[in-house]
Simulated assay, not measured.
Amino acid sequence: MFERLRAKPREWLLVRPPATAEGRWQWLHYSAQQACASGTWPPPSALLQLPGALIIPALDCSHFCLPAPPGLKRHEWPQLFEEYAQQPAEALLVSCLSREAGQLELLVMQRQQVQQWLAECAALGLQIIHGWAELQLLPPPEAGQVVEWRRAQVRCLKAHSRQWLVWPPVLGERLPQAWRDLPAETLEGDWPSRLARLEQVPSVLEGTRPARPQRAPLMSGMQRRLLLGCVVLAACWSALYLGQSLRQIEGWKAQVRAVTGPVNSPQQARAALARVQAEASDWQVRQQKIVALEQAFSAWLQQQPGWSVVRIELDDSHWRLALRGNGPQPLPAEWQAMAQAAGAQWLDEAQSAAGQLHLTFELGEQP
């Protein structure tokens, strides 16, 4: 109870992972809504005594506002966007930022990546007790306006506490029309020059830290008898569960054979299952590349109204498009940049007739 009543710290040491593998961690001393000092690691030794907060880069998280039925549990949150996810739900870390009018505002991150960052912070001697996404650092904009934070790696915009936009340089300089029409307050630099009241912003790291161990109280005689009864019930339940499991073994074997085909040993079954999982993983990677390419082309088509897509084909490991129009064509370097951003490879372009353009992208091996 006393911990709930205790005020949150008003002074933090914010740390952000490097943008590249060769980069260094960045830090910011936050106090009373102001950035007092910042730089690359390490900070002054006195700042290491402050409570630490991990800042999740904007390009490493996804923001959703989805309708949610009442009574939805935390472990059921991934079901709300399972059609968007391209990987198992247990690989994702989902945090609820707000709940309003039957909708959940969710932030989705890679669980393994966040745990790796926390481990690196521990190795640096940091005590991370909180975490925020980069868009949460921006102050709330005035009504009808946008707050834009410009950096070399990305542009972050906020038009409402629930309306975010992350715009990487590969998509060009022109924002979507709905964002261009709003007056903007521009902030530049490695950190925003004006920050939100972080003590009022929800953390995105709930559920990543283990619960604090508690000392068990001494048991009375009645409690020992109750514990003995629980042990007996657990033994009975375990025996019943074991009997049911033994009857289901043949069913499980049939399911494995349906996936892997006939096998002669558990080693062969494991190898076949590993092959099936690898093929499924390859297929998911290809789907992610296709989604990234489609998003890049949608952004390009919005900026080039004279062009339109007349045909899309997926043949083995190739993604082909046929375009028709009379507008200016991007340079080959721009097609290559789109492909590299999606993890694919641009092969060639051919102009079969006036106003027609055919593009081919290599997605990788066919699963």
Rank of each mutant, 00 (worst) to 15 (best):
V309I: 15
E349N: 08
S317A: 13
W335L: 02
S308P: 02
R311E: 15
S317P: 01
E365L: 11
E362H: 14
W319P: 02
W307E: 08
S281H: 12
E334N: 03
Q287V: 13
G325D: 09
P330S: 03
A278M: 06
V310S: 14
L363Y: 09
Q351L: 08
A296T: 04
V309R: 12
A350P: 02
L347V: 08
T360H: 07
E362T: 00
A278E: 13
G343W: 06
A296S: 14
A341T: 03
V291A: 10
E349M: 12
W283T: 11
W283P: 00
A339T: 06
L363K: 09
Q329N: 05
L359V: 07
A296F: 00
W300Y: 10
V291N: 11
E362G: 05
V285A: 13
F297G: 00
N326Y: 07
L301C: 02
P332L: 04
K289W: 06
Q336M: 03
E334F: 00
D348I: 03
L331A: 14
D348Q: 12
S281E: 14
A339K: 04
V310M: 05
V309T: 14
P332R: 07
Q302D: 13
V310D: 09
S308L: 12
P328R: 08
S317G: 15
D315W: 05
G355W: 12
F297V: 01
H358L: 14
E313C: 03
E294D: 15
G325A: 09
V285P: 00
S308H: 15
E349V: 04
V291C: 01
H318E: 07
L323K: 10
V310F: 02
A344G: 06
I312Y: 03
W283A: 15
E279S: 07
R320A: 05
Q304I: 01
A350S: 08
W335N: 01
P328W: 06
P330A: 04
G325M: 10
A299H: 15
F297N: 05
G364M: 08
H358G: 06
L357T: 04
R311F: 05
G355D: 11
I312K: 14
W283K: 11
E279L: 07
Q288L: 14
P330Y: 03
L301N: 00
V285T: 11
V291K: 10
P367M: 04
S352V: 14
L331I: 05
Q295A: 13
W319C: 02
